[in-house]
Simulated assay, not measured.
Amino acid sequence: MIELSATEILFCHNTWQHTSVVQLIKETDQGTWFVTKETPFHPVSHIWPDHPEDKGTVVINGIKYPVLACQTGAIELATGELYIDKDIPIKRGEAGWVFVVSHLISKKSNIAVENTVELTVDKEYQDALSRGHSAGHIAYLALNKVLHTSYWRKDADRKDELGHHNFNSYAQETSFVTEDQCEDVYRLGKTLRKRGLNSAELMADLSSITEQVNQQITVWLALENEVSIECEGKALTDSRYWIADFGIDGVVKLPCGGTHVSSFKEYQEIKVELKTQGEQELLMLTHSKKRI
């Protein structure tokens, strides 16, 4: 009998194809879920689903099948039971449990525990998500910097990795990555005004702020610096950090579990749009273009 273990993740290491051994299978109405020892697939998080799952295929006994979904799972070691996505009943670090990457395929596939399978990620799609996600980080750091200068009337306790008042941390309601885009929604309520943000002036000056943010992003991209992911371990639940050098502004190291670009050189451009959504919500759309 195969020993169940946490999935070793490979998506941080520029790996898009990998052969691995199946360690668990679960049949559901959706199809067949399977877990391998290692995987190059990035799953969607059950806690903060801002980054979509990878697409791709798996070859089983010489037959190729599409991977229909890829989600975070947790296995109770005592029972061998696999819980997926919102059904996961525990937090990471719980004794007697391991977190895994769960791949969904059709019930028609002939898959068994201890099969050796070949997993292949759709690199083009993953790269587009990576550009969208890294662009979102770059955009919010630029927004923080622009607001820091003129739109806080008192010192905010939270600072971002470049030392600016962390508007993103205080105000972000949702964030969602798609291909070459990131969408962030910010709430400008009473609490934020009490902390010192001049919300009314911010909303009135959106055109000017947008221009300044885009100018800052252009300056940073011109550095053409590398971006790296630092992993504290091989498991899905081990901490991972996005690291980028922003020149005279400093080096950023922030926790992030998604996939990302390897260099600013991968962008032709990044452009931000800021829009109001009612009286107290701000939408930031970050669009990126791949350098050809």
Rank of each mutant, 00 (worst) to 15 (best):
E273S: 09
G189V: 04
T32M: 11
K289E: 15
N225D: 04
D85C: 10
K64N: 02
E81Q: 13
T286S: 13
W220T: 01
L147H: 13
Q181W: 03
T191P: 02
A74K: 09
C70L: 09
D155A: 14
V146G: 07
E8V: 15
E53H: 13
I229T: 11
R153W: 14
E224D: 08
S134W: 05
W48D: 11
H260W: 02
P52T: 11
G258I: 07
S45H: 02
S109H: 00
G258A: 10
G73S: 07
D122N: 14
V261G: 07
P40L: 03
L82I: 01
T19M: 12
F167T: 04
F41S: 00
R131Q: 07
V35W: 05
V121N: 01
V58M: 10
D54Q: 08
T178Q: 10
Y186D: 01
T72Y: 09
Q71C: 03
W242C: 00
A200W: 02
I138K: 08
E27S: 15
F99M: 11
W16G: 09
L147W: 12
E266V: 13
A200N: 06
F34G: 03
A128D: 13
T57N: 08
S106W: 04
Q212V: 05
Y151Q: 06
D157N: 07
V227Y: 06
K289L: 15
L141A: 00
Q23G: 04
D180F: 15
R291L: 14
W242D: 00
H260I: 00
V185F: 08
A171H: 04
K123E: 11
I243Q: 11
Y170N: 06
L197M: 15
L68G: 02
Y170W: 07
E94K: 14
G233Y: 06
I9G: 04
S199G: 11
E232A: 07
Q17C: 05
A171L: 07
A139S: 13
P89A: 14
W48N: 12
G233A: 10
G93F: 00
G196T: 09
L119F: 00
N14H: 07
S207I: 12
N225G: 04
S228G: 00
S262M: 04
I84R: 01
N144M: 09
K275C: 06
L147F: 13
S45L: 08
K26M: 12
P49E: 12
N214M: 12
P255L: 04
Q215R: 15
A244L: 01
Y125D: 08
C256Y: 03
E269W: 05
Q215T: 15
